[in-house]
Each structure stands twice: as structure tokens, then as C-alpha cells.
Design a protein around this nucleic acid. Sequence first.
DNA 1: TGTACATCAGTGAACGCGCGTTCACTGATGTAC
DNA 2: TGTACATCAGTGAACGCGCGTTCACTGATGTAC
Lengths: 214, 214
Amino acid sequence: MVRTRNRRGEGGKLRADSLAGARELVEQAGDPEAVTLRAVARQVGISAPSIYPHFADRAAIMDAIVDDAFADFNGAISAAIEQASGPVAQLRAGCAAYLRFAADRPNRYRLLFMRDPRATGDPARDLVPAVGKELALGPAPAIRTQSFAALVKSLQGCIEAGQSASTDPYLDSAAIWVALHGYATLHVLLPFFPWPDTDALLDRLVYGLARIAA
Amino acid sequence: MVRTRNRRGEGGKLRADSLAGARELVEQAGDPEAVTLRAVARQVGISAPSIYPHFADRAAIMDAIVDDAFADFNGAISAAIEQASGPVAQLRAGCAAYLRFAADRPNRYRLLFMRDPRATGDPARDLVPAVGKELALGPAPAIRTQSFAALVKSLQGCIEAGQSASTDPYLDSAAIWVALHGYATLHVLLPFFPWPDTDALLDRLVYGLARIAA
DNA sequence: TGTACATCAGTGAACGCGCGTTCACTGATGTAC
DNA sequence: TGTACATCAGTGAACGCGCGTTCACTGATGTAC
């Protein structure tokens, strides 16, 4: 609330503060619509017009926090994959981290895959056109497709190790993603539904859809 | 646009007209937020206050079109089930109808399972508390849980016919629902993703999760 | 060391917009006599 | 058959709100001389 003016040359700090404020708003409200320019300003403790030297418009703020959420998400998943040893364990660890992220930080998960990409500021950075086969499998995936690329890579690792009978890792990765997303989404939207045990479901999804023998 | 005033005693027609207008708005805009009271009035060709004799507030309109969408959805699924013969075929037909509904009428599907129930007018009618095990399995399911109940019943039919090895039809139905929803949701949100063939995926989901031998 | 000045961080007031909702009303329609 | 009147469908103007965005500004801070 109370904020002391930045010193000269340090005006850029307000950008980081604004992003932090926007992040807090998402966390508190659970609704990306709550991230209004004025709400961010209130959260940070500045006047609304002060945002403009740092963001072109409201869409630019949304875009930045979505990227921020993706970075967080990617970090959680790649950390889980790295900690596991062996291709099958890595695949499962990545998928488990996916569900854990959605369960632990539901309001950030909303930003990732529960918003219409058309609502984003810069359409060119949207998930829709960026997730084409070539890009997702390429060497330097964009931040919004990085984890999907990691999933494909994990499944390819299982195939190379002779532990998966999959003949199309891209297709089967998409199937796994769809199932994870359905579980994550409905968990977020309907938290009081008597859901089955996460680990048991995860086993069926991963091993079944990746064609891995139990 | 141009509308002639209803005759005396027929003022109630405006309620139906308003609902039709709200439905058209959802279909056009794809965003439930676009269904504002004033937009409905514009669509119908009346002034905004004229809505009030027929709906308590904006939330009541939203609630009504959500119920309308559920009735549509339930009708599509039960029709598909009735047309199929044999428990396994019925189960699969119901699931296929689920995906078909989401693909053909994406903006209505948004109303069903892609909105936060907290955004609805009357919290008591929300899906969250209504979908408890007892209600969903009961004899007269509410409109918003009817199709889930039909899914459970279909799976029970498969078990009784000795064609499913499932030991917990409620749990396995939830798993199927989750998978269907994930596929439907991401299709709606990311229509340009190179999705796998719907029928092949459906087979794997239904037979795999319902424990039916192919 | 002191002072004038440019720069920079941030403000306050205002704009037009669309929203949900309220209120007093208008004027056509049917009915009672 | 004609007329007064109650009822009903629907309106127009207004309210306060929060929003994104623009604009002219203020006042502290650092720097040049």
C-alpha cells in the first residue's frame, strides 16, 4: 500500500512491482478478469497512469503474467523430470508435476490453459499457432510450448529405451496432455467432486496412453 | 430488431424472446461475459428495463441459459444412447455424443463446464454441491448432473452384462468424464492444434477406462 | 561549496464507455357499464 | 353501441460504478558549472 518513490534511474522497478501485484491479484481473486489496470495500481500503491511508462496497455500486463505463469509451470515440470531417473520414471514424474501444479496453484493454471488465447494481448504469441508440430518438436520451443515439448521428448526417451510401444509420440503425448488437462481443469472448477485417487488415475493415464507395460 | 408489442396477456412471451436472444449472443460471441442485460435487450429489440418483469437480475438470465444448454446437452446424449443397442455400444455412443456436442456447439459447451460455478446466480443450483455421489446416482438427477448419471448407468449396464471388469462404476465414470472433458475443452480452446483422430482416441478412452476388453 | 537547471518518477483530474438497476411514466388494449 | 376506466407491456432518463486511457502537471533528485 504505502510505497516510497523510486530513486532516479530506478523507475524500472515499478515494472517488476506491477507484475508482482498482478500476480497477487490473480492468486487472490482466482479470476483473470480481476487483473484490471486500476486494480494492479491499487495493489502496488500507485496511481493508474503510472503503469503506462512500463506497459503499453492492459493486454501487455496480462501477457506478461501469463508468460510468468508459464515460466513457473515449466520450471516445476522440468525440475520434476530432472529429479527422476530412467525414462519411464521421468515421464511419470513430469505428468505428476503437471497435476500437482494445477492442484497447488489453481489460479495460475487458469492463466495457462483455461483462458481463451484470443483474450491475450499479442495474438502472435498465442499458444494456438505456436504449438504446431514443428515448433513443439523443435530445438528451442517457445515458453508456452516448452513443457509439451518436454512431454514429447520424455515419451521418445521411453520408446528409445524399448519401454514404450508407441509409434507416434507426438500423438500419444497429445492424448496424455488432454487427459491431464481434463483432470486438472475439473479439479479446479469442481473442487468438491469426490475425485478418485490421483496417483492411481495417473498410472492408468500415463501407462495406458503411452503404451507402457505395467 | 424491430418488434411489435405483445398483446395483452401475452407479455410472458418476452421471457422466451429474451432467452432466445441470450442464446444467440452466446452463439455469436463465444464468451458468456457478452451476455449482458443490455446486450440481450438490444438483441431482442426492447429497452433494458423491460427484462426485469421476467428475470430478477442478470444472474437469473445466465442461470436460465445454462439450464437451457444443459437440457440441449442431455437431449443429445440420451438420444445417442437410445439409438444404440447393447450396453457397450450405448456407453460408447453416449461418450461420442459428448464429444460431438462439444465440437459442434463449442459456445454452448463453454456454458456447461468451462464456467466457474461461482459465477452463476443461485449457488444452490450449482454443479458443485449437486453432483455428490447420492444425487448423481439417485432416481431423479438434477438437470446439471443428468448426463453424468446416464454415464454411470451405462457403465453399470456393461458390468451387469459381464462386459466390463469395472468394480467401481462411479469412479470409472468420473475418469471417463475427465478424459472426455479434457479433449473437448482443449479442442474448443485450441482448435488449430493437430489433434489425433477423434474415433481412435474415443475407443482408447472408453474401453481403457471402463475396463472393457476390445 | 552553492546554485541553477534538466531529468525523471509519479500524480490528479478528466474523457467517454458500457454496465446493472431504479423510477416515474406512457400509451395501447381490453372490459364494465 | 359508445364511453370511461383499469390494466398491462413496455419506455426514457437517470443513478452510480469501475473501467482503460490521455493529458498537463508537480516535485524530488541528481548534475553541470
